[in-house]
């Protein structure tokens, strides 16, 4: 199982509890999470299913490259953190 946890910026807008999910890659793990918590999908992915430009994913502390992020391998005890970019205004 892989643990997924969201930064508080997400939690303000949508119910996205920490959860443990299945999947050998980031993409699979997120898919499993979205199956359990479907309202969260549109906050992380755009209409085309791509990671939103200003959402960042870390696996065990390493930031995932957006272009190949979904294919990034995760292990049984991995932790996926989702954060948002910082912005002005």
């Amino acid at each position: 199982m892989t643990a997924i946890t969201f930064a508080k910026a997400f939690r303000r807008h949508v119910d996205c509890p920490d959860d443990n999910v299945d999947g050998a890659t980031v993409g699979d793990a997120l898919d499993d999470y979205f199956t359990r918590h479907p309202a969260v999908r549109s906050y992380v992915l755009d209409d085309e299913g791509s990671l939103r430009r200003h959402v960042t994913v870390f696996v065990d502390g390493d930031q995932v490259d957006h272009r190949c992020g979904p294919a990034t391998a995760v292990g049984d005890s991995s932790v996926i953190h989702l954060f948002q970019a910082l912005s002005g205004g």
């Binding site: 910026a9 997400f10 807008h13 949508v14 549109s42 906050y43 992380v44 755009d46 939103r52 200003h54 959402v55 948002q84 970019a85 912005s87």
Partner: peptide, 8 residues
Amino acid sequence: DHGHFGIK
């Protein structure tokens, strides 16, 4: 317009 998290 959530910006980072898309439109709702």
